[in-house]
Amino acid sequence: MRIPYFPGCAMKTTAKNCEVSAMAVASKLGIEMVELPRWNCCGVFPSLVNDDLMRHVAPIRNLIRVQEMNKSGIVENEYRLVTLCSMCYHTLKEANLFVKDKEKLTKINTFMDREEEYEGGVKVLSFLELLKEVGYEKIAKEVKKPLKGLKVAPYYGCLLLRPREIGIDDPENPTILEKLLEVLGADVVDNPCKVQCCGSYHTVDKKSIVAKLTYDNLRYPIENGAEIIATCCPLCTFNLDSRQKEAKELYRDLKEIPIVYYTQLMAIAFDLEKKFFGLDLDLYYKNPKPLLKAKNLY
C-alpha cells in the first residue's frame, strides 16, 4: 500500500523519534508512507469562527497536494492522507468539514488562483486509524519482542478525540491505543487522565500552567503503577516530558517518568534496528533508555 503522508513541522524537528519509528513500523507492515512532495504548515490551530476563511487556506492547500500526487502518478487512486501528528490530523480533518459548505470552498479555491481546485474528496487519517485498518492480527505477527512487564499508560490528549465529528474514537473513553499496546504485549495501566489537556501552546508563555497540568496528568497514572507513558501528539509529548522539570520545582513529590510515542514502542516490540527507536536523539528530558534496559527491551 502506497499512501500519501503529511509530516508537519514537528516530525521534522521535535518529533523526529516519532517519524523514524513510525516509518519503519509502517514499512514492516507493508505500508509505504509517501511524503507529500510539497507541503506547508497544516494551519494549526484551525480557526473556529465561521468567517475566517484565510485560516483554512493552509490545510486545503495540503489536501490539493494529494490530488496532485494522484494526477502525477506518485500514488495510484489513493485519496487518503495519513498523519502522525494529532494537531495536523485535527486541522486537516477540520478543514475538510469546513469546506463541506460549497460557498466557502469556492471562495477558498478562487483565492488560491495558482493551485488546482480542491474537490473535497481527500480523506484524512491518523496513523492509529491506519493501523486499526491493517489489523491487530497482522501487527501481532510482527511482535518479536513483546513488551512483557512494561507498565504502559496511554495518553491521547485532546485533538485526536474531540470534537466528536473529528475524533478517531470515543471522546471520553477511547480504547484504540490500549488495544494496540495490548497487542504489543505491554501491561496496560489505566490512565484516568488519558483524554486531558496537556496545556498545549501555553507552554510558550505560561509554563507554570503547563507545569501544573503536567503534574496532574502524570500523578494518577504513576499512582496506578505506570512506568512509562505512550503518547500520540508531539505537543503533549513535549509538555509531559520537558515540563516535568518545572513541575518538579512546584510539586516536590512528582516522580519522573519517561514519555515515548506509541510508534517507538511498536518499533521496540517489532525488534527493529535500534536506530528506528529514535532513542538516541537529543529530545528527552527523562531518558527512557534506563527503564527499557532494565526491562531487557533495549
Binding site: G8, C9, A10, T13, T14, A15, C41, V44, F45, S47, R55, C85, M87, S200, Y201, H202, T203, V204, D205, P234, L235, F238, S242
Partner: peptide, 26 residues
C-alpha cells in the same frame, strides 16, 4: 494577548515550532 518580545531567546531555542505556531495563531 502575548508579546513575542517577552519570550526569551533561550525559550525559543527549545520550544517546538508547533507550540509557537498555535500560540501565535490564538
Amino acid at each position: 494577548y502575548i508579546d513575542l518580545k517577552n519570550v526569551s531567546k533561550e525559550e525559543l531555542k527549545k520550544i517546538p515550532p508547533i507550540a509557537l505556531i498555535s500560540n501565535l495563531r490564538k
